[in-house]
Every structure is written in structure tokens, then in C-alpha cells.
Amino acid sequence: MENELYGQVLLDHNMHPFHKHELEGATCSHEGINPSCGDDIVLKLTVKDGVVTDGAFQGSGCAISQASADIMLELVIGRSVEEALHLKDLFSKMIEGTITDEELEELDEAGALQNVSHMPARVKCAMLGWRTLETLLKEDE
């Protein structure tokens, strides 16, 4: 089960995160922390006319938290705030194990984290980026 979790998609995003960098001109930012793990990320977004035009994160944490945040940004950049929040809901559903196959397709590479639903201890690692995104977008509204 965990073998599948530490698959190529997750490893690639962990080793070579595309969206892990400073973001010039960000319109909002928020720090997300998992106190018990020490996972700590700062998520920055550029939101223009209700659309997430750019985003990046920095910080440290386990492979699950880092890869999940990177995959998330890949998914939400270019989407509207509503779409981004919808994807967050889908991701939560996937982790809770209640997602349909159709919905799973919408999550694209984030589907690589589906097995986290069987690992209670790692749920908050996978959710960190998404939780931070939700707070940020709802605060920004």
C-alpha cells in the first residue's frame, strides 16, 4: 500500500518541486503548519479577477506534504477561485475515501496520494497544502 504511495509521481514532485520558490508580486500568502510533524509551508498566490494566475510555496516537511503542495499548485494555477476550492473539496473526499472515479480523474496527478486515505498518520501531511490554500482563498474573498 505504502509502496504505491511512494511512487514515481510523488518522488518526482518531492525531489524536483516545480512550484517551490519565492513568488514576486503575490497578492496573498499564508503559513500552514503541522505542529506535531514539524511540516511548515508558506503558500503564496497571485489572484487576479477571481483567478489564481500564479502560485508557489516554500518551507520544509515530509515528502507527502511537499509533493502534495507542489501537485496542488500544478492543478490550481490558471483556475478560478471557485474551481480551486472545488478541487480542495475533491481532494478531501479522496482522503476520506468517498470520491467517485469521475471525480478522481479531475484530481489528475493528485490522485497519486489516494493511498493516504489508508494511513491516518499521514493525512495531515497530504492535506497541509490544501488546507492552507483553502484558508488563503477564503480569507482573500
Partner: peptide, 8 residues
């Protein structure tokens, strides 16, 4: 990361 160490 230590959590990945423990999981692996």
C-alpha cells in the same frame, strides 16, 4: 524527512 523514514 523523519516521517518518510518511519513510513519507508
Amino acid at each position: 524527512h523523519p516521517h518518510d523514514i518511519a513510513a519507508l
